[in-house]
Design a protein around this nucleic acid. Structure first.
Lengths: 219, 219
DNA sequence: GTGTATATCTCGGGG
DNA sequence: CCCCGAGGTATACAC
């Protein structure tokens, strides 16, 4: 990784055109060839960047970064204040927990959290516009399609509504019900769900993890 | 801006839990207090980060970053290879061109690109769920609501459909038609638009810029 | 503050 | 390769 602190102006041309007036900034060049121009603030997003793969041509006062899709970044250097390189090696990567996939797993393991006597038919049940998170059957044998979100917002309800529209066309699933499950269901999403005849359920992630293996706490 | 190259392991706890095993990485601390942990690859997104405002407590071998919403980032330093600080000053900021706002401007200036004899009524026409990009009238006086996107995807069609549903309730706009305009309209968005009775149009940004001021090239 | 829409979104998975 | 969905999305803007 090469880190350059320099007074520079920058021009990007590609998906849009953008220009950075002259100022002192950090130019970060990673081992894979990606380049990022950072100011001293504004969260982690750089002012300008080019993702790998890139071709990098450096002269004393101008760098040109180009990529195969025809985008280009031109950096005019007027003063280099620092220039260093470091060997970092391959990163083992991030381990995550708590995302939607895990919620879906837990609900698949015990769909009764979503409704009495629900039985899982399959996860990622396919439709021609994408897979439904969970397809279940209730005690009467009625199909129940479940959309799982970490945060339940309006577009998640729309997504489920689209799936229901498709599933309804399958005679075997006629009369399919919808359940919108999320850790938090926003007010507007509740209203939309109800007006679409979709039931919404707020689920507690920690409780879900607890009841996932109840036998462990019982004995 | 402080730049530290160090062998470290990192734990984040907040909206999810995440762990980074020990490895050599760049730790970037900006003037506004935000912290980002970068590997030597993987575009501009850091492996882990904390946005400002933060409280940063640093000891020899452990940094703790916390924020007011209760998130925390803990960095265990096992070996510091480099540690430098640089004064960058306030950045003048990025100047952009070519985004959706500009597309909307150009289409407002000449709606006939979207359909013969369309006349603009107003931009950002308000509804109770948000503003429609353009409201026009055609030669017959029928209202036409236009949603402008850079890339036309399925949720943009849904958005327009929601607006149309609201506009239809206004007697003055009864029979309102929908036009979905984007530089590229994705296949799934086309299908959904057509099934919703919404016309879609792909617009060429460069051509649009050209015809914006035709008198300049004619004389 | 919430709610909504955008982003050179980024990133990963599946066909 | 494109398409699609998720994101600790972040960010700006209106209410």
């Amino acid at each position: 990784m090469r880190l350059v602190i320099a007074r520079c102006s920058v021009d990007y041309e590609g998906r849009l055109q953008a220009h950075l007036p002259e100022a002192v900034r950090l130019i970060m060049v990673k081992a894979d060839g990606c380049v990022a121009i950072h100011a001293d603030g504004g969260a982690y997003k750089p002012l300008n960047w080019m993702n790998a793969p890139n071709t990098l041509r450096c002269s004393e006062e101008q760098w040109t970064v180009t990529n195969p899709s025809g985008e280009s970044l031109t950096i005019h250097l007027t003063e280099v204040l620092s220039d260093s390189a470091h060997e970092l090696g391959i990163d083992p990567g991030l381990q995550k927990d708590g995302v939607e996939a895990h919620l879906q797993e837990l609900l698949a393991a015990d769909p009764t959290v979503l409704g009495d006597e629900l039985v899982l038919v399959r996860r990622e049940y396919p439709t021609d516009i994408g897979p439904v998170d969970l397809l279940c059957r209730d005690a009467e044998g009625t199909a129940v399609a479940v959309e799982v979100k970490r945060r339940g917002e309006i577009d998640g309800v729309e997504q489920l509504a689209r799936y229901l529209e498709r599933l309804e066309r399958d005679p075997a699933l006629r009369g399919v019900q919808g359940v919108f499950a999320a850790q938090v269901v926003k007010p507007q999403a509740r209203v939309l769900a109800e007006s679409r005849g979709i039931r919404w359920v707020e689920i507690d992630y920690d409780v879900l993890r607890g009841i996932e293996r109840p036998q462990m706490s019982l004995f």
